[in-house]
Design a protein around this nucleic acid. Structure first.
Length: 738
DNA sequence: TACCAGACTATTTTT
DNA sequence: TAGTCTGGTA
């Protein structure tokens, strides 16, 4: 980290220009590794040094981690004055605004934030109550459609007006109910936080003018990832002074599936015809081979701003390509390479990152690393705040804060078991719906209680007593006593301790960790000491926030979570058609372009060494698959690559000539020579690349063969509309054509 | 109410 | 394969 004040002389001309720009809209197109963060922080420092009050700067990012880093770096340059800046994520900034001014749009200060899990339970309940549950509607799909609508700032009415087709009609039906339920529970989902903040600014003239006046400089980082609501938020706030700076890279847009809209980046220049545009294309991170390789993958995308990164760093090794028999072999190849480099003293464990397309792929790597005793940390996967026991306790805390939160009442009511089952809950829900009361009010209502059996009644009373005691404790301001009281008196601790299994032990540890979190919160002088503030910090935080160089270990994570990071050596695994690019992207142009960008992001994480690996055979969902190697590998010019040491090619790439396959296919069996297996070896009926004749489809080329009991599943590519087919040999009766 | 077996279904996830 | 969900039964 830079500790001295910033030094203009170490910046390149474009960077300097961006830093010194003072008035008017500015767009910085910042390629990977082009010193973006340095430019933004220097710019902030420069503005403050030229007399701007820090409190008049708003800087928004997408992650808490980025926000934290930005603040720390500015502080290092200009000292404590940086504290008064508004630096935060879109969500935390909007939530802050809503807590301050939200009452103007009828929002209570004590709103809770619903995460994906809560949204899911809510939507399921609604589907059930509408009798729509078995109509093959996936709650997830529904939620993402609603989310998409909210990101566009659409009201349920506006959505309904344009809804067409079966699915959209259902969404139109559910959407308003979903919103009403949230409102009744005094809850906001992630999208609401943005939406309500924008609405507040649009409708509340006074608030709007106050905020517009206040923020003389507005900066948005990672602009390629903004959605419409976020765009609007920044747009309104910067409308008065017009000093908006956006920083982004269209080649690194990998969150399209989450509503990020790349076209908003283009829109910036039409919104602000006078905008200054600066492109940072000198890369300070990677070697030329890595940059050229990455470029050869993204350049296939249409409609991108062509921008080729350059570097003065022309040394370094070629991109290394590793081929393995199975995914286990692939993982071992990675492990071996790491081990060799570390033993040779060329690298430390912490210099390596292993990136993959799906979290599920981490397991094999972990296994290999464990057997080879390679220290590693796994990023992502099951998140702390999504663990059951943590969510349970959070649910309790939320009820203490806001008893209208029905979702949390339902979750906590019978955990641990108080003998209150589905039937009782349904009874209470019905009663609540009839009387227009909240669930909690209903449970406490004497008239309702008379309808209950003794057992249920005593359970409910002990629940209510527990919440009331906790609410009393909460008035004192510290969170930890409330939490520990709830854990003890609910009997949850007791239950877990009694279980004495490995799982219960780990749950107890997680709960202990939660106590640590609240203790830190209680002792942190910076935080507002209320339960609401604590719950908000929980809802708006991600695990990766705390991801720092935690010791000297290899980092394992998905390509998505690697964005913004860099490592001396990077492995990109699973470069196979159907894995990366992901199978879901194979028939969609837009998604394929996003996969390409994802590959670009992954490759440009590497500073010195980049390894791309694939396996010929991979089991997916318990089924063996022979995927052809990824098209991305084919995009990289040969003179930039080198086979990895230990790579075991046996079949040449699909694109090469057939004769090669025929010669080598003898070894093409399930029992890899280096890893003997118990299973009898299986000989595929055809070789990959072999021409075959099908009665109906005609001539085709074998792409893959997989064993299928006493049969074989043959994947064949046919020309024209027929495309790729999976055929069972005994039925398809494919004949080989020489 | 609670538990178990079988069915079902599978990206990515900054907040 | 593995984790989640559902429905049937004790």
């Amino acid at each position: 980290m830079e500790t001295a004040a910033f030094d203009l002389s170490t910046l390149n001309p474009e960077q300097r220009e961006a830093v010194l720009h003072e008035k008017g809209p500015l767009m910085i197109i910042a390629g990977a590794g082009s010193g973006k963060t340095r430019v933004i922080t220097s710019r902030v420092a420069h503005l403050i040094q030229t007399g701007l009050y820090p409190s008049r700067i708003l800087a928004v990012t997408f992650t808490n981690k980025a926000a934290k880093e930005m603040r720390a770096r500015v502080e290092a340059m200009i000292g404590d004055a940086a504290r008064n800046m508004w630096i935060g994520t879109f969500h935390s900034t909007c939530a802050r605004l809503l807590r301050q001014e939200g009452e103007a749009v009828g929002l209570s200060r004590d709103f809770v934030v619903y995460d994906d899990g809560d949204q899911n339970t809510l939507i399921r309940d609604i589907l059930k109550s509408k009798g729509l549950e078995e109509k093959s509607i996936q709650p997830r799909a529904l939620l993402s459609e609603i989310s998409r609508a909210k990101e566009k700032l659409l009201t349920p009415e506006q959505y309904a007006a344009t809804a067409s087709g079966y699915f959209e009609k259902i969404v139109a039906q559910v959407f308003p109910v979903y919103n009403r339920t949230l409102a009744k529970a005094n809850a906001l989902d992630f999208d609401d936080i943005l939406l309500m903040a924008v609405r507040l600014l649009q409708e509340g003239k006074e608030v709007r003018e106050k905020m517009q006046e206040r923020f003389e400089q507005v900066m948005v980082d990672e602009y390629q990832d903004v959605n419409f609501a976020q765009y609007k938020f920044a747009d309104i706030l910067s409308a008065k002074h017009k000093n908006i700076t956006i920083v982004g890279d269209d080649d690194q847009s990998i969150y399209g599936w989450r509503g990020a809209d790349l076209s908003l980046m283009l829109r910036f220049t039409s919104d602000h015809p006078d905008a200054k545009i600066i492109t940072l294309d000198q890369n300070y991170r990677s070697t030329k081979q890595i940059l050229d390789g990455a470029y050869s993958v993204v350049r296939h995308n249409r409609g991108r701003n062509d921008k080729k990164l350059w570097t003065q760093n022309t040394g370094g090794s070629l991109i290394q390509i590793g081929e393995a028999g199975t995914e286990q072999d692939e993982a071992m190849l990675v492990a071996d390479t790491v081990l060799r480099e570390v033993r040779a003293g060329r690298k430390k464990w912490g210099d390596f990152a292993v990136l993959y397309r799906m979290n599920a792929m981490s397991r094999v790597v972990e296994e290999a690393f464990v057997t080879m005793r390679i220290p590693h940390i796994l990023v992502g996967g099951q998140r702390f705040y999504e663990r059951k026991e943590i969510k349970d306790m959070i649910a309790y805390l939320r009820v203490v804060l806001n008893s209208a939160d029905d979702v949390s009442v339902k979750r906590s009511l019978n955990t641990p078991s108080r003998g209150i089952g589905q039937t009782s809950v349904q009874k209470a829900e019905k009663w609540a719906a009839d009387k227009g009361a909240t669930l909690f009010e209903t449970l406490a209502n004497t008239a309702f209680q008379q309808e209950l059996q003794k057992k249920q009644l005593s359970g409910i009373n002990s629940y209510i007593g527990l919440i009331e005691d906790a609410a009393h404790l909460a008035k004192e301001g510290r969170i930890t006593p409330v939490l520990t009281h709830l854990m003890k008196s609910s009997g949850l601790l007791e239950e877990l301790r009694a279980e004495r299994t490995e799982e219960s032990q780990s749950r107890l540890e997680n709960l202990q960790e939660l106590v640590n979190v609240t203790t830190n919160f209680d002792n942190d002088p910076e935080t507002e000491k209320t339960l609401g503030a604590f719950l908000e910090s929980v809802a708006l935080s991600a695990d990766t926030d705390s991801l720092n160089e935690s010791g000297d270990s290899v980092t394992l994570m998905t390509l998505h979570s690697s964005k913004g990071l860099e490592f001396p050596a990077v492995f990109l695994m699973g470069l196979e058609e159907g894995v990366f690019p992901h199978s879901r992207a194979l028939d969609s142009n837009t998604e394929m372009e996003e996969e390409r960008r994802l590959c670009y992001v992954g490759m440009t994480r590497a500073k010195e060494d980049l390894y791309l690996t694939f396996a010929r055979r991979r089991s997916t969902y318990g089924q063996a698959k022979f995927n052809p190697q990824s098209r991305f590998l084919g995009d990289i010019p040969r003179d930039l690559t080198d086979p990895m040491v230990g790579s075991s090619p046996s079949v040449s790439p699909v694109s090469s000539t057939r004769t090669v396959h025929l010669e080598r296919s003898g070894t093409y069996s399930l029992s890899e020579p280096d890893q003997p297996r118990q299973r009898p070896s299986w000989t595929p009926p055809f070789q990959v690349g072999q021409k075959v004749q099908h009665k109906k489809f005609g001539l085709g080329i074998v792409i893959a063969c997989a064993p299928l009991r006493n049969d074989a599943e043959v994947t064949v590519g046919f020309p024209g509309d027929v495309g790729v087919k999976k055929l069972v040999q005994s039925l398809a009766k494919l004949e080989s054509v020489s």
